[in-house]
Amino acid sequence: MKRLKEFIVEWAVKASGIVSIVLVALIFFFLLKEGIFLFKTQGAGGFLAGRNWYPISEPPGFGILPLVLGSLLVTFGAALISIPLSVASAVYIAEIAPGWLKEVLKSTIELLAAIPSVVLGFIGMMTVVPWIRSTFHVPTGLTAFAGSVVLAFMAMPTMISIAEDALHSVPRMYKEGAYALGATHWQTIRRVILPAASSGIVAAMMLGIGRVVGETMAVMMVTGNAASMPKGILYPVRTLTATIAAEMGEAVQGSDHYFALFAIGIVLFVMTFMVNMAADLFLHRRRG
């Protein structure tokens, strides 16, 4: 009786563990199952490299190049803002901040991570967007740049906390060795600690960027959603994620438009999958 209970529980927990694998496989399978139909009428090249996204015109155009470029532009801008800020504050938190300030910074960053993306998008609409319009004298503040600013802040919690872990796990001996040679604290950080933690920091940045690529609501609310080839950082753009979120509601199930949105889902899944695997490789290299 007791044996049986032990046996059942062991299998139940093992099955629960395997569920994670099954879910990842199911996600990929169902995206593929729906998305694959697009390629009956549309070549993969025309889908990935087509410059026209006119899903409900006659004839429709399902080229996602403008959307990919929109995503890349917003992501690039966000990375430019978030990476230096994240590395700097990770170093500050891990190495310099006194105990109480460290707690305050870490807790606040945790709260930043917790703010729902729709709330950040809303506040972005109310603050960043008008600021961009008046500062840069553009007709609308709903631009790629607005998306980059909002997304930068969404990426930072991930980047900072993982980078801080990486800095933290640098062995004390390295630091003591540098001090023993007469280096200042800052020299030690720059010449010893940062290089030693570099692969963990790279992984942290990648995971943050992975989050930016996949972010949906905030970016949809502040980038203006123009599905044309992006003209620049101060023009409206539309990302892959926003396209799915905005159009799936109107797409008729079983139509080419519906399949095309799932095909975009495949592209997103594959992109984030690769980013995550690469980041994981970097993280494990650090642990040796």
Partner: peptide
């Protein structure tokens, strides 16, 4: 699998 599940974009979960 868990690492990847954590990285799947929220809109893809929607799909």
């Amino acid at each position: 699998a868990i690492v990847n599940l954590a990285g799947v974009p929220s809109v893809v979960f929607g799909l």
